[in-house]
Simulated scan of single mutants.
Amino acid sequence: MSGCKSVAPWERGNLAKMQMEIDPHPLQSEIQSHNYSSREAAPSHKSSSGGGGCGCY
């Protein structure tokens, strides 16, 4: 399949919508990623060293 296709000017607005982006909510995705990595890197309640968190909220 070829990726080259001419798009009419009145159709370009549909391609510019936020839903057409690869990541439509980049800030929300970044916050979720930060929270996930923070929980996974948290120290376990059974050890004093870092890492090994259970991922609990």
Rank of each mutant, 00 (worst) to 15 (best):
Met1Cys: 06
Met1Glu: 08
Met1Ile: 09
Ser2Tyr: 03
Ser2Cys: 06
Ser2Asn: 12
Gly3Glu: 10
Gly3Ala: 05
Cys4Phe: 12
Lys5Met: 13
Ser6His: 05
Ser6Leu: 08
Ser6Cys: 02
Val7Met: 08
Val7Ser: 03
Val7Cys: 06
Ala8Trp: 09
Trp10Cys: 07
Trp10Ala: 12
Glu11Arg: 09
Glu11Trp: 03
Glu11Ser: 10
Arg12Glu: 10
Gly13His: 02
Gly13Ile: 04
Asn14Thr: 05
Asn14Gly: 06
Leu15Asn: 03
Leu15Pro: 01
Leu15Asp: 05
Leu15Ser: 02
Ala16Asn: 10
Ala16Asp: 11
Ala16Ser: 11
Ala16Lys: 05
Lys17Met: 07
Met18Asp: 09
Met20Arg: 08
Met20Leu: 00
Glu21His: 08
Glu21Thr: 04
Glu21Met: 13
Asp23Trp: 07
Asp23Glu: 15
Pro24Met: 05
Pro24Gln: 03
His25Gln: 15
Pro26Asn: 14
Leu27Ser: 11
Leu27His: 13
Leu27Val: 15
Leu27Asn: 06
Leu27Arg: 14
Gln28Pro: 00
Gln28Asp: 15
Gln28Met: 03
Ser29His: 15
Ser29Gly: 15
Glu30Ile: 08
Ile31Asp: 13
Ile31Ala: 14
Gln32Thr: 01
Gln32Lys: 07
Gln32Trp: 01
Gln32Asn: 03
Gln32Arg: 05
Gln32Phe: 02
Gln32Ala: 04
Ser33Arg: 15
Ser33Lys: 14
Ser33Gly: 11
Ser33Phe: 02
His34Trp: 10
His34Thr: 14
Asn35Ile: 12
Asn35Trp: 04
Asn35Tyr: 08
Asn35Lys: 15
Tyr36Pro: 00
Tyr36Gln: 13
Ser37His: 09
Ser37Trp: 09
Ser38Val: 08
Ser38Tyr: 01
Arg39Thr: 05
Arg39Leu: 15
Glu40Asn: 09
Glu40Trp: 06
Glu40Asp: 07
Ala41Gly: 10
Ala41Asp: 12
Ala41Ser: 14
Ala42Lys: 14
Ala42Met: 15
Ala42Asp: 07
Pro43Arg: 14
Pro43Glu: 14
Ser44Phe: 00
His45Lys: 09
His45Tyr: 04
His45Phe: 07
His45Leu: 13
Lys46Phe: 09
Lys46Thr: 10
Ser47Met: 08
Ser47Tyr: 07
Ser48Glu: 13
Ser49Ala: 11
Ser49Trp: 05
Gly50Ile: 02
Gly50Pro: 02
Gly50Tyr: 02
Gly50Thr: 01
Gly50Phe: 04
Gly51Gln: 03
Gly52Lys: 02
Gly52Phe: 03
Gly53Met: 07
Cys54Ser: 15
Cys54Pro: 04
Cys54His: 09
Cys54Leu: 14
Cys54Val: 03
Gly55Asn: 07
Gly55Leu: 09
Cys56Phe: 09
Cys56Leu: 13
Cys56Ser: 14
Cys56Met: 11
Tyr57Trp: 02
Tyr57Lys: 07
Tyr57Arg: 02
Tyr57Phe: 02
